[in-house]
């Protein structure tokens, strides 16, 4: 029941701090060294992502099963959107962290990753064209968290508790959508331009879902081929998707 302005300011405050890889980077990368750096960073970011989700107003009121479900579905989309946000002012580069920046050619050393880098760079360019604002970015990220297709489209609640949690989740999604509409309304656009912007921004979410699916397949393959040792939280999240 928070006012939209307060809701946005709460999700802005929930933003995770800047994270550093803090590794001695030996260039040129090998397939194993780059995958190790990427997975180490992802593992660190995942811990912060859980803390971020807990700060989204209303998230902790969902059942624990739903919290787990939503996070395990969206984690790679959230990582990718964060990466795009950090990279938006750096054309041609992917800013994984302030001490781990890559260009597309550096992806050559990992089989199959350049295709994903190219998709990420293209989607980042689109956000650059749209001049994505921070307020919009945090709303899109919260929408990804709540937009599990498995949850919304395939499962139906069986118990009263499940039904209650699902209803809470839908109300929370309403709040995030309202917040995004509100953020767009502050940009001084005409009503038609606002509607178009909302459409363009939300349509990008399907591209992010696609990239995440590609990324998940890629990481599973790298793990299966023993290119990289996946462990801890990242292993748990990857296993949840395969």
């Amino acid at each position: 029941h928070l006012h939209l302005e307060e809701f946005i300011s709460r999700i802005m405050e929930a933003e995770p701090p800047e994270i550093y890889l803090m590794e001695d980077m030996k260039k040129p990368f090998t397939e194993a060294s780059m995958m190790m750096s990427l997975t180490n960073l992802a593992d660190k970011e995942l811990v912060l992502m859980i803390s971020w989700a807990k700060k989204i107003p209303g998230f902790l009121e969902l059942s624990l099963a739903d919290q787990i479900h939503l996070l395990k579905c969206c984690w790679l989309e959230i990582l990718m959107l964060g990466l795009m946000w950090r990279s938006v002012d750096h054309p041609g580069k992917l800013i994984f962290s302030p001490d781990f920046k890559l260009n597309r050619e550096e992806g050559q050393c990992v089989e199959g990753i350049m295709e994903i880098f190219d998709m990420l760079l293209a989607a980042t360019s689109r956000f650059r064209e749209l001049k994505l604002r921070r307020e919009e970015y945090v709303c899109l990220k919260a929408m990804i968290l709540l937009n599990s297709s498995e949850y919304l489209c395939t499962s139906s609640p069986q118990t009263a508790e499940e039904l209650e949690s699902r209803n809470k989740m839908l109300r929370l999604l309403d709040s995030v959508i309202d917040a995004l509409v509100w953020a767009i309304s502050k940009l001084g656009l005409t009503t038609q331009q606002q509607t178009l912007r909302l459409g363009h921004l939300t349509m990008l979410l399907s591209h992010i879902r696609h990239m995440s699916n590609k990324g998940m397949d890629h990481l599973s393959t790298m793990k299966r081929k023993n290119v990289v040792l996946v462990y801890d939280l990242l292993l748990e999240m990857l296993d949840a998707n395969t």
Partner: peptide, 24 residues
């Protein structure tokens, strides 16, 4: 219980009030 076992770390982090920065 199965959720707890399957998602041990995730479950722990969701329930834990310890600063995630310490855990990271």
């Amino acid at each position: 219980t199965s959720l707890k076992e399957k998602h041990k770390i995730l479950h722990q982090l969701l329930q834990n009030s310890t600063s995630p920065v310490d855990l990271a």
